[in-house]
Structure formats: C-alpha cells, structure tokens
C-alpha cells in the first residue's frame, strides 16, 4: 500500500501507522452523556467499502492524516491533514 502524504508525496505503507476511524476527531464534550462517550470510544460503522480513517506519518513528517479509503479494494480516494479536517469541523460547528 502507498499513501500520498500531502507534504511528503506518495510513500510506502511502512512509513505510516494506523489509528482507526476518523470519528476519533469528533471527541464529545467533557460533560457529554456516557452513551455519547461510549459510542465515541467503542462503536464503529466498520464499513465494507469507503471509510475515513486516521493514519500517522510516523517515519516521515509526523502529520496525522485522514485517509479516505475502500476497505474492500484498498483503493485510496483522498488524503487530508487531520488538522485541516478538525479545524474545518470546528468552523462548521460554529
């Protein structure tokens, strides 16, 4: 697998490490009800198809990335900086 880091270009899988669903960016408020925290921490859509997940360019520029990817074909459709995605989500919330 090769992932295109927005900074470093296309790099081999071995430079990256994986975290999981990009829903990790949507951290509930501290006082959110327990169910919301449970869903955030544990429940997953786990789609067989297109998913968005978090990768870390660990052996590279240390950027956290949101990769849009197909879990059945391993096709990669997009790769964005997690920082940008998170900031955009905040803008949208306001």
């Amino acid at each position: 697998m090769r992932i295109t880091c927005p900074y470093c270009g296309t790099r081999d899988l071995r430079e990256f490490s994986y975290r999981g669903a990009a829903s990790d960016l949507e951290r509930p408020d501290a006082e959110a009800p327990p169910e919301e925290w449970h869903a955030y921490l544990h429940l997953r859509d786990n789609p067989a198809g297109v998913t968005r997940d978090l990768w870390y360019h660990e052996m590279g520029c240390a950027s956290w990335l949101v990769v849009t990817r197909n879990t059945v074909t391993h096709e990669i459709l997009a790769c964005d900086l997690a920082r940008d995605v998170a900031l955009k989500a905040r803008e949208a919330k306001r």
């Binding site: 960016l25 870390y56 950027s63 956290w64 900086l81 997690a82 998170a86 900031l87 905040r90």
Partner: peptide
C-alpha cells in the same frame, strides 16, 4: 510523542 501529536493536530488544533 505520537499521542501528543494526535492530540495537538487532531483534537486541539486551535
């Protein structure tokens, strides 16, 4: 280190 990068970039980018 990886955790700090995650928190900084993804959870507290502001």
């Amino acid at each position: 280190m990886k955790h700090l990068e995650f928190v900084s970039q993804a959870l507290r980018p502001e």
